[in-house]
């Protein structure tokens, strides 16, 4: 196990490994955004992921969420923990089967270096952002807004306001005719994950454009 753990990290820049292992990232939601963010951060090897969701997997979720047809009916947090463990078992995955509200944000997510907002409903996004900013003004929160439909890669961007980051196009709303689809949800989720790494590693100069990738 120890050998495979070292082998898992063999391709990383050694300067990053300590940061990666000590990092704690909270993810609010385990749907299209959250499951994709979790997959990427687990593959990076982030030391601890704290993930909260209260939903059960439905067959309609499989168009964009990182679950499998034999997991339909399971709690998302249980299925995601299982799937992340199959990717790599060297990180800690702390799962909470709970609906997040203003009163439990601090207790559930407060330990993290940063929070990734991965909710579906705008009203929940707003609640989470406003509460996090007031609780932890110095800890970054990375949100997603505007990711429904397909195409239009070029209008997906990032807005930064102090420690609040918004990934997405801030236009495309999920509605009857425009549903979220795997590629665009995956792009925005991975922008969130990528931005999380940039923030976690910001004081390491070797970071973002490593020329020694083989």
């Amino acid at each position: 196990m120890k050998e495979s753990r070292s082998a898992f990290f063999a391709h990383h820049d050694p300067a990053l490994i300590d940061k990666i292992r000590k990092a704690v990232v909270s993810i609010a939601g385990a749907g299209g955004l959250g499951s994709n963010v979790a997959y990427s951060l687990a593959r990076v090897g982030i030391g601890k992921l704290i993930i909260a969701d209260f939903d059960i997997i439905e067959i309609s979720n499989l168009n964009r969420q990182q679950y499998f047809i034999d997991q339909v009916g399971q709690l998302k947090v249980d299925a995601l923990k299982h799937n992340l463990g199959k990717i790599q078992p060297f990180s800690e995955y702390i799962m909470h089967n709970i609906k997040i509200d203003e009163d439990n944000i601090s207790q559930i997510f407060g330990e993290a270096d940063l929070l990734i907002e991965a909710f579906d409903k705008a009203v929940m996004k707003k609640m989470l952002i406003e509460k996090w900013i007031s609780l932890f003004p110095d800890k970054p929160v990375i949100c997603a807004s505007g990711l429904a439909g397909y195409g239009r890669n070029d209008i997906i961007g990032i807005q930064k306001i102090d420690n609040l980051y918004i990934c997405g196009d801030q236009i495309s709303e999920t509605s009857g005719s425009i549903s979220p689809m795997a590629p665009r949800v995956g792009i925005v989720a991975n922008m969130q994950a990528n931005l999380a790494l940039e923030i976690l590693f910001q004081d390491i100069s070797a970071g973002s454009c490593n020329e020694n990738i083989d």
């Binding site: 997603a144 429904a148 801030q170 999920t174």
Partner: peptide, 10 residues
């Protein structure tokens, strides 16, 4: 002034 639009979808 910063205004962020929060849109459902995720």
């Amino acid at each position: 002034v910063k205004v962020i639009h929060l849109i459902s979808g995720g």
